[in-house]
Amino acid sequence: MKNNASSSVVTRLDRSRHAAPQVFERLREMILSLELTPGTVLSRAELANRYGLSQTPVRDALMKLGEEGLVDIFPQHATVVSQINVSSALQAHFLRRSIELEVVRTLAEQHDAALIAALRATIARQTELLDLNNYERFALFDQTFHRQMYEAAGVPQLWDLVRRLSGHIDRLRRLHLPVEGKTMAVVQEHTEIVDAIERGDATAAQAALRGHLSGTLHQIEQIRTSHPDFLTDD
């Protein structure tokens, strides 16, 4: 176990919404962005103080994070941000690739000009961030790009499913983003996918997608070398 995530600053929540989902969403985002790194201890009492809540909604949020494998809960002891499980990451990648290959095939057959324009606009936003090293916003637009495709293919609930199961692969990708040339490669790969969809070339769109999704997995050993305490095969 490493550092303890604590803060004396109260974080305001939307009082028109239930508290537990908001705490879950905020902690999940912090874990996926690696603001909370593997091994960070999450104190229920300190989190309750930070969000101005009782411990019950905090407990519920932590339990949901545990269900996604993002924290390890040791009853009566501590809750700790989990290591990145490589096996879970590979399974999430398999699921996402399987679904998105069908998604891009469907989109290539639709010839939806509005979708093409929307996807290119998202790529343009990513391009603006290339020299800013703003990896959080870059990753956000990456998620937006893929969500737009799921929605256009008429399967937004599958995007929700993929997101729930992708915590480990998302953290691997976040570790990979700062590597020189990675963000530029993502922009180029997104562009290749959209170009193929616009041409109505389902085979090329699937090939571009397959290469795009597999990039981080080819770098697992390098990531493990750079962050030996973050990854586990268990």
Results as ranks from 00 to 15, higher is better:
Leu34Thr: 00
His212Lys: 03
His111Asn: 15
Ile223Val: 02
Leu177Cys: 08
Glu128Gln: 11
Ile99Arg: 08
His168Gly: 07
Ala20Leu: 03
Lys64Ala: 15
Gly52Trp: 05
Gln22Asn: 08
Ala117Leu: 11
Ser8Glu: 12
Leu177Met: 13
His111Val: 07
Leu32Met: 03
Ser8Cys: 09
His176Gly: 00
Ser166Glu: 09
Leu209Asp: 00
Glu25Phe: 01
Arg96Ile: 07
Arg163Gly: 05
Val155Asp: 04
Gln222Ala: 15
Pro228Cys: 10
Thr232Val: 14
Glu151His: 14
Gly39Val: 03
Met63Ala: 13
Asp142Gln: 14
Arg171Ser: 04
Arg59Lys: 13
Leu119Glu: 11
Thr127Pro: 03
Glu100Gly: 01
Ile169Gly: 03
Ala48Asn: 06
Arg17Gly: 01
Ala124Met: 06
Leu70Tyr: 07
Asp234Ile: 13
Val80Asp: 05
Gly66Glu: 05
Arg224Gln: 15
Thr37Glu: 12
Gly181Lys: 11
Lys64Gln: 13
Ala19Met: 10
Arg105Asp: 10
Glu136Lys: 13
Ala92Gly: 12
Glu46Pro: 00
Gly215Glu: 11
Thr79Arg: 01
Asp195Ile: 05
Gln110Gly: 00
Gly39Tyr: 06
Leu217Gly: 04
Tyr135Met: 04
Val187Gln: 00
Ser6Gly: 09
Val86Arg: 03
Arg97Ile: 12
Arg50Leu: 09
Val86Leu: 11
Arg210Asp: 15
Met30His: 03
Phe74Met: 13
Glu35Gln: 10
Arg174Ile: 05
Leu165Arg: 14
Asn49Asp: 09
Thr40His: 05
Leu231Pro: 02
Gln219Lys: 13
Ser6Ala: 12
Tyr150Thr: 00
Ala118Pro: 03
Gln148Tyr: 05
Arg163Leu: 12
Val155Lys: 05
Gln126Thr: 01
Asp60Met: 11
Glu109Gly: 11
Val179Gln: 13
Leu177Pro: 00
Glu180Gly: 01
Gly69Tyr: 09
Asn49Gly: 13
Ala19Gln: 12
Leu129Val: 07
Ser16Lys: 10
Ala204Pro: 05
Leu231Asp: 03
Ser88Val: 08
Gln157Asn: 14
Ser8His: 12
Phe24Pro: 02
Asn49Pro: 00
Ala124Arg: 08
Asp234Thr: 12
Ile116His: 09
Ala118Cys: 13
Gly211His: 14
Pro75Arg: 07
Asp14Lys: 09
Leu172Trp: 04
Gly215Ser: 09
Ala19Tyr: 05
Leu107Val: 05
Thr79Tyr: 02
Arg17Met: 15
Phe94Ser: 15
His93Ile: 10
Ser226Gln: 14
Glu25Trp: 04
Arg147Phe: 12
Thr37Leu: 06
Ser16Asp: 09
Leu177Gln: 00
Leu209Val: 07
Gln206Ala: 12
Glu109Leu: 10
Ala121Lys: 12
Thr225Leu: 13
Ile31Gly: 02
Thr106Met: 08
